[in-house]
Amino acid sequence: MMASSGTAERQVRISRIAGRYLVFDIDDVAYIRRHHGICAVFTGTMPQNPTQNVFLGLPVELYAEEAKLLVDKKAGYIADDLADHLSQLKALDPAARAAYFQSLKTQRRNAQLVIDEDKAKSLARHMERRKAATVQPDTRPSEVAAEAPAIAEGDSLFDAPPTKRVSPPVAVAKDQTSLALTPTTSSTLIVPQPTSSAAIEVPSSYPLYAYLNQRGYFITPGLRFGGDYSVYPGDPFRYHAHYLANSYEWDTEIPMLDIVTSGRLGTAVKKSYLLGGQAPEQDPVVGSEKTSGEVRVFCIEWAGM
C-alpha cells in the first residue's frame, strides 16, 4: 500500500515498558500513521495536570498487534529498556567503571569552577558598586561594614545581597573536589539496541488486524462500540468508522444473539458489524504447525424489514 516511499528504511523505536508498547518520538508517530496506517492511542498527559485526560500527547501506546506488524514489516524494533538497562550496566568492565566515575568527578569539578568564577565576578561587581554607593552620600566614615550598608540603605537593598552568604562556599568548594555528581539517569551509559528478537505476544485477533491493515484500513480500539476494533476507511481524522470488528477463532461458536445485538448497534451508529477470523491452513505442510489460512470476514447490517 502506502509504505513504498523513500522513508522505507526508517526504524521506529518501540519501547516495551511493563508489557506495553510505547513510541516516544513524534516523528515516528507521524511516520507510522502516514505510511503504515497505524494511529494507535495517545496516552501521555501533562505532569502539571495529570487529571487532564481528553487531549493526550506522547507517548503513543501501540497494540501488541501493531507492534508485531511493524516489527514483521521490518519498519520498527522493540527496545526493552529494562532488560537493556540491567544487562548493559552489568556488562561494564572495571576499567570502564573507573573511567565513568572519574568522568563524573571531572564534571563536578568543571561545574564547580564555572560556579566559582561566576561568584567571584558578581562579588567583585557588588563590592565595586557598594564602594561607589557608600562614597557618594558620605554619611558614613571610610570604614565599609560587611553587611550594614546593604540593610541601611534602601536603594541598594535589592541589588546588593549580603556578602556573608557569598564567602563561605568559595572556601568549602576548594576541598570538596573529591565529591562526584550523582546523575539521575543512566542514559549516557546505555546504547539503545534493537531487541526485536523478543517475541511479541499477540492476541488471537492478529490475523484480522493484519488483514484490515493490509487493505489500508485504520484501526482504533473498538470498545466504545462493543467490539475488538473500530475500522476506518482512512485516517480517523477524516472518516467515520465503517465497521465494528470482532475477531473469532474459526470454530468458535458465536451465539446468534451476539450477532443480532451487535448488528443492531452497528446499524444504529451507521456502521457495519464485521466478524472475521483466520481459516486453518488447507493442507498443512509437514513439520510446521503454523496456521496461515485465509482470513474470512462477514459484514452484518440490519436488513430494514
Partner: peptide, 14 residues
C-alpha cells in the same frame, strides 16, 4: 432480518 455479506462491504448510508 439481517444482511450478511461475504467480505468487506461498506455500510449503507441511511
Amino acid at each position: 432480518y439481517y444482511w450478511m455479506h461475504d467480505g468487506l462491504v461498506k455500510p449503507r448510508q441511511n
